[in-house]
Amino acid sequence: MFKTKAQAVKAVSRHAEGGLRFHDLRHSYASWLITSGVPVPDVQRVMGHERPTTTLMIYTHVQGGSQERVLGALAAFSLPAEG
C-alpha cells in the first residue's frame, strides 16, 4: 500500500475530515504512549522535549476512567495497623 511512513501520513492527512495535521498525529502518538504506561522521561526523549514538564503539560490530560483508577489505587492502599 504505502512504501514509507511519510506517504502514509500524507495520505491520511489528505483524507481526514477537517484536515488532519502532522501535530495531530504527534499529539495522538504521545498521548497513546503516556496512556499505555510509558514513563514520561521516555516519552520526553521520543518527542524531543528539553524538559519532562513540557511533555506533561502538552500531552497529559484526563483520560476516561481516571477517577476510577484513582479510587482503586486509594482503596488498595493500606496503612499498618497500630498495635
Score class of each variant (00 low, 15 high):
residue 11 A to F: 15
residue 9 V to A: 14
residue 31 S to N: 02
residue 10 K to W: 08
residue 30 A to L: 04
residue 38 V to W: 02
residue 60 T to L: 08
residue 45 R to I: 04
residue 12 V to T: 10
residue 65 G to E: 07
residue 73 A to H: 09
residue 23 H to F: 10
residue 16 A to M: 03
residue 83 G to K: 08
residue 32 W to T: 14
residue 14 R to M: 11
residue 37 G to K: 02
residue 79 L to C: 02
residue 51 R to N: 14
residue 15 H to D: 12
residue 50 E to M: 07
residue 82 E to L: 12
residue 67 Q to H: 13
residue 64 G to Q: 15
residue 20 L to D: 01
residue 2 F to S: 11
residue 33 L to Q: 12
residue 67 Q to R: 13
residue 45 R to Y: 10
residue 55 T to D: 06
residue 9 V to G: 00
residue 76 A to P: 00
residue 5 K to Q: 13
residue 2 F to T: 10
residue 27 H to N: 07
residue 33 L to E: 04
residue 70 V to F: 08
residue 41 P to H: 01
residue 6 A to T: 11
residue 3 K to D: 12
residue 72 G to H: 09
residue 72 G to N: 13
residue 50 E to Y: 05
residue 71 L to Q: 09
residue 81 A to S: 08
residue 63 Q to W: 01
residue 50 E to G: 08
residue 21 R to H: 11
residue 47 M to T: 02
residue 16 A to L: 05
residue 5 K to R: 14
residue 72 G to R: 10
residue 36 S to T: 11
residue 45 R to S: 05
residue 70 V to C: 06
residue 60 T to G: 03
residue 59 Y to R: 00
residue 81 A to H: 05
residue 82 E to P: 03
residue 7 Q to G: 12
residue 22 F to V: 13
residue 1 M to N: 09
residue 29 Y to M: 12
residue 65 G to W: 03
residue 21 R to I: 04
residue 30 A to S: 10
residue 71 L to M: 12
residue 30 A to R: 00
residue 22 F to G: 05
residue 67 Q to K: 15
